[in-house]
Nucleic acid binder design. Structure first.
Lengths: 207, 207
DNA sequence: AAATCTGTCTAACGTTTGTTAGGTAACGGA
DNA sequence: TCCGTTACCTAACAAACGTTAGACAGATTT
């Protein structure tokens, strides 16, 4: 499990943690290149040069942010696998994972959403540094979906996973944070993904 | 630095068009800020200053790219509405729109995918310039889904649309271009969205 | 032939950027 | 008391950026 929630007591954190939290927020809001180290330093009450005591470069700072973001996601996935009862249906198990993914995404928005938004355009060196963790998470999901959908080809499973990721991850662009909202969207996605939207009866039963 | 392969007949296009095409490609591949006007000029065999004869600023160039991208999408939508037969089922009509969206997305990848990837992080002035066109497209889809899913609340319809957009648009990050691949993914998305993935019979009937 | 328009180039400007070298105050252990 | 470590600051560096003004060749128009 990773570090503490930075949201509450910013002044009690070490310099390194404060930089990390501010960086995640600014990177997500404004993008990596458009965030200057001078602005970032001002956020935590430092001067730009001082941050090189904590991070060896701007790229290293981004790597730390992206890695923490992905760690949150991996932890959330494993937690569900550990907690889920043995007798749940496939639909329930999938719904639990969808809810966990979306909660992790919005709870530590700066880091996790940062990862989703920034990975693609990050410098090559940064991408390959973060890739292993990312691959871990993706293959966890692939394994899960393969197990739940035994009749589907591996190729279909991959595409379904990518489609599901797209639907969930895009929510960071429009979904207002708030547990109620996130959980509601999670139920909608899970129901839609499993039962579709066309059948007259939309599984509102689990309300 | 290496020059980018410009579309088909680069030398037959006007200077303005060549700049536009190269900009769309570079913006998508590398991002807006990380693309310099000097690199861009080199792509079309010019010097940076010369491009100010065609565009009044870098922002104006981005606006032109984003607007063209969204225009492609709007056109694709209207074309389906015009062509679709009167007696098709709701599922078929939706499938046609999904296929059209995905085809438009991948056919003019530089512009349309550019729009999807770049809008969120574009400078405020750019975003508000492109917003009207974007809103047009989104409300077309909202209207369509409301009509196809009369039992759903407007709020659910909006969320379903956003989820569907997320699933489709994320494909520009991983789907290898190629008509066959795109159409196959379109069928998968349409079937999954309408019928879900849980029912033992996965509507492979339309193969 | 003269004048105008078109499309490009050169050369520079002011600004901002990531990064580094060297300094300094506070503090804890020997 | 001396020493080393921790955590910051100051000041500067070279490079890259968007943008502009002015010049210039070729075509087109008058």
């Amino acid at each position: 499990m990773a570090a503490v929630s930075t949201a509450t007591h910013p002044e009690s954190l070490s310099g390194r943690e404060r930089i990390l939290a501010a960086a995640a927020q600014r990177f997500l809001a404004a993008g990596y290149v458009e965030t200057s180290l001078r602005d970032l330093a001002a956020d935590v009450g430092m001067k730009a040069g001082s941050m090189y005591y904590h991070f060896e470069s701007k790229d290293a700072l981004l790597i730390a942010v992206l890695e923490r973001g992905m760690t949150y996601m991996v932890d959330a996935f494993e937690e569900v696998e550990a907690d889920v009862a043995a007798d749940v249906t496939a639909e329930q198990r999938l719904a639990a994972h969808i809810a966990a993914h979306l909660r992790a995404l919005h709870d530590n928005r700066a880091f996790t959403a940062g990862h989703v938004m920034l990975f693609r355009t990050a410098p090559q060196a940064v991408r390959s540094a973060v890739l292993p963790l990312r691959d871990d998470y993706e293959s966890s999901w692939t394994a899960l979906l393969s197990e739940l959908l035994p009749d589907r080809s591996p190729h279909d499973v991959t595409m379904l996973r990518l489609g599901l990721f797209g639907a969930m991850n895009a929510s960071i662009e429009w979904l207002d944070t708030g547990r109620g909202t996130v959980d509601r969207f999670a139920r909608l996605v899970a129901d839609q993904f499993w039962n579709g939207v066309g059948s007259g009866a939309s599984g509102k039963g689990t309300q």
